[in-house]
């Protein structure tokens, strides 16, 4: 080993540790305000400002969560089942929404005639809270995953559809003309012009769609109570006044929602839209 290589690898090592350290520091910084809030909450309950059987302290919620995760307990491991069921429903609803909304969005964005005929019906359906569909779907499909997934689908599909249409319509005609005048066929235009130009809007649509699917899920699971899912757990805990379990459910929803955004969409966004966006922005990289 020459000294040069040794020095280089040391430098590399240093750089890697620095990157790790930087990342850890950023995570700590991110969690700091949340931790502060939890402390205030804990203090408020301990000081008797809030009754623990209405708003339990974070420590009580964590203790209950550990109980629910403990597999040796009779009710243990139940939390994981609820989470798995909810994730399965939300993700499949989201997948269906993407499969339907993106092609439909391109169709509506590209064809003025279709847009003018279909958009009135869509804009009438858009303001309806997805929850309002639940009673109707319960009648149509009965109790079951089909109803819940359909409600979540309705929650997710409109933001994705809306953003896709917006994205497609914001593509400048000049760039299409320019590329066409250079002899590009429709496929080229789609892949090289439409898709990159639509991506930023599409990404925010997907993000919103997933967030909506997740939020709608809870309400749907509450109304179409089966026997599993986080929404069902919150519903049952609420009806039997098991307040700590109810908050375990709520915290799980928030944490999983956050994790989905951080581990699914941030990397996806970095890989797609940042590539095309100019680097000079006030906020810089988020």
């Amino acid at each position: 080993m020459t000294p040069d290589v040794a020095e280089g690898s040391a430098l590399l090592k240093e750089r890697v540790t620095f990157a790790l350290f930087d990342r850890a520091a950023r995570t700590v910084k991110f969690l700091l305000p949340i931790a502060a809030l939890l402390l205030v909450w804990e203090g408020a309950v301990r000081a008797g400002l809030a009754e623990s059987n209405i708003l339990p302290a974070p420590s009580m919620v964590i203790a209950r969560a550990i109980e629910l995760l403990d597999v040796t307990n009779p009710a243990g491991g139940m939390l994981l089942t609820h989470i798995a069921t909810s994730l399965y429903r939300a993700l499949s609803a989201f997948a269906f929404a993407v499969l339907v909304a993106i092609p439909l969005g391109f169709l509506l964005g590209l064809s003025g005639t279709v847009y003018r005929w279909v958009s009135p019906v869509i804009s009438l359906l858009l303001p309806l809270p997805a929850v309002a569909w639940t009673p109707i779907l319960l009648v149509a499909f009965g109790q079951g995953d089909v109803t819940i997934i359909t409600v979540c689908f309705l929650g997710a599909v409109f933001p994705v559809l809306y953003s896709t249409i917006q994205g497609v319509r914001s593509v400048s005609r000049q760039s299409v003309w320019v590329v066409r005048s250079m002899g590009a066929n429709f496929g080229d235009i789609f892949v090289r012009v439409m898709l990159p130009a639509t991506l930023p809007a599409l990404m925010s649509g997907l993000k919103l769609g997933m967030a909506h699917a997740w939020r709608t899920l809870v309400a749907a699971e509450m109304l179409a109570a089966l026997s599993s899912g986080l929404g069902y757990m919150i519903f049952a805990a609420r009806s039997y006044m098991d307040v700590p379990t109810m908050f375990v459910g709520i915290v799980c929803l928030a944490v999983i929602g956050m994790l989905i955004e951080h581990f699914l969409f941030v990397p996806l966004e970095n890989a797609t839209t940042r590539k095309w966006e100019g680097a000079i922005h006030v906020g810089g990289r988020r």
């Binding site: 969690l31 949340i34 929602g257």
Partner: peptide, 12 residues
């Protein structure tokens, strides 16, 4: 951080 923690919390 607060916003990304609160955004997924359902209305109820």
């Amino acid at each position: 951080p607060l916003i990304s923690a609160f955004m997924p919390v359902p209305t109820l």
